[in-house]
Design a protein around this nucleic acid. Structure first.
Lengths: 240, 240
DNA sequence: TTCATTAATTGGTGCGTTCCAATAAAAAAA
DNA sequence: TTTTTTTATTGGAACGCACCAATTAATGAA
């Protein structure tokens, strides 16, 4: 595999952290680590930076590098945070329950002003409008409305969108979606929400909407996702 | 001020991006930038990495560095994302409306099992339990329940918590809170929510809860925040 | 003992170099 | 023309060095 050096170090440090090899909740200093691993301090710094970014450790100049106690006790949450949040159904694995998708509608329309802005379109650029209902084992949990410029995927068919669009994008165009700008909020459920998501009248709808980007920065899709409130729990590590 | 080199470059590039100096939505390559700014490629890389992390640009190896079109059209959202999300009232500036805080209760209690885990306490470590109602110009928008170990702030008084605890922490102990692990979700509003936040029966409560850390990684506070749903909009840039 | 000063520790910044891997453009072959 | 191969471009990884800045520990003065 020829693993990257800093990646190896991250993996090894994570293991050691979990094995309790640092009982004082503190990592050796960077220079010592460089010696121990027989790598340059730069590589250590890169590894530690990534880990700090993921919230696994805290670095404090002049003082040292410390382990986030939460990471020790709560690995699952961190794993969730790292690998997920994007694509939702594609990444969700709900206790082995089978995800399924039902296409509610599939049209080609002209973009609204807002959509033109978000996806960088001219008023004449047609977009697919795709509404899908997603379920786990017959339990619907999300209504997803997606808008994709047809110029990006001219050949999209109804069959394609019954599975993962991201997978189709990967296979057909060898491109992937790795970034998105999301807003998370909630609203009272509408009648349609209540019917499709099996919600009570005073139960809310969780909303996650935003723009998904291709690797080169091209806005690929605007997505508006209405979730059963019990299925929307967004975990994030915030630094300021 | 003796600004940092990479920080200067970030500032300058941002300006140029907004001034439309890169009409092809593409930055010069790293080596050229290094020449232009008369700095090393390493410094350019550092600057670009930060910007990519903030979602301002996209880097693609072999291809180049591209401007996030959303950043151009929507700076406000990005600024919100960068400087906020933490501390809420401390950073919120709601159209010049004055924020205020009302202390609903202030007790010292023993921590629950869950709290012991989250804040790394023994069953005998007492914690402050602080419930506050926060408003903008007489309009309440958040009920905040916070738990802080007394061993971290032995001298906390009711007066202190009527303003910002984070400010008090800064002034008294010269420590700051720059990281947090948060969960965002929603629930139907309780009777108490409806009363305090002036919510209708079928209007939901937005919930933001999690742990705030000191710079050295010490868990400082567990906070459970119940917001009027219209005030909870969490923007985030996600990479996988 | 207490407080101020000094020294050692530790992560941050910046420069420079070498090589690699993914992509895109150009050239060659079919 | 179309496809394949080669070449150039571009960001990524890794190494190493020198110095800076915040913190902590050790030392000395009051």
């Amino acid at each position: 595999m020829a693993e990257l050096v800093y990646q190896q170090i991250i993996t090894d440090l994570k293991e050691k952290i979990f094995a309790g090899k640092f009982p004082d909740m503190r990592l050796p200093d960077e220079r010592t680590l460089a010696e121990k691993y027989n790598v340059s301090r730069s590589s250590i710094k890169r590894a530690l930076s990534r880990m700090a970014n993921d919230g696994i450790i805290f670095k404090k100049r002049g003082s040292g590098t410390f382990i986030n106690p939460l990471y020790l006790k709560n690995e699952s949450v961190f794993n969730y945070e790292q690998g997920s949040n994007l694509g939702v159904t594609d990444n969700f694995q709900m206790d082995g329950k089978k995800p399924s998708t039902k296409v509610l509608s599939f049209d080609v329309v002209l973009p609204s002003k807002e959509l033109q802005r978000d996806l960088f379109l001219t008023p004449e650029d047609f977009v697919y409008k795709i509404i899908r209902l997603r379920s786990f084992d017959e339990t619907p949990f999300m209504i997803e409305t997606g808008y994709i410029p047809i110029k990006i995927m001219p050949q999209l068919t109804r069959e394609n969108i019954e599975n993962s669009i991201f997978n189709y994008l990967q296979e057909q165009y060898n491109q992937s979606v790795t970034k998105s700008f999301l807003s998370i909020f909630a609203e009272p459920s509408t009648k349609q929400d209540q019917e499709l998501l099996q919600l009570g009248k005073n139960e809310p709808t969780g909303i996650m909407e935003g723009i998904f980007f291709l690797d080169n920065g091209t806005p690929f899709e605007f997505s508006h996702m209405r979730l059963h409130y019990k299925y929307l729990k967004f975990n994030t590590f915030v630094s300021i």
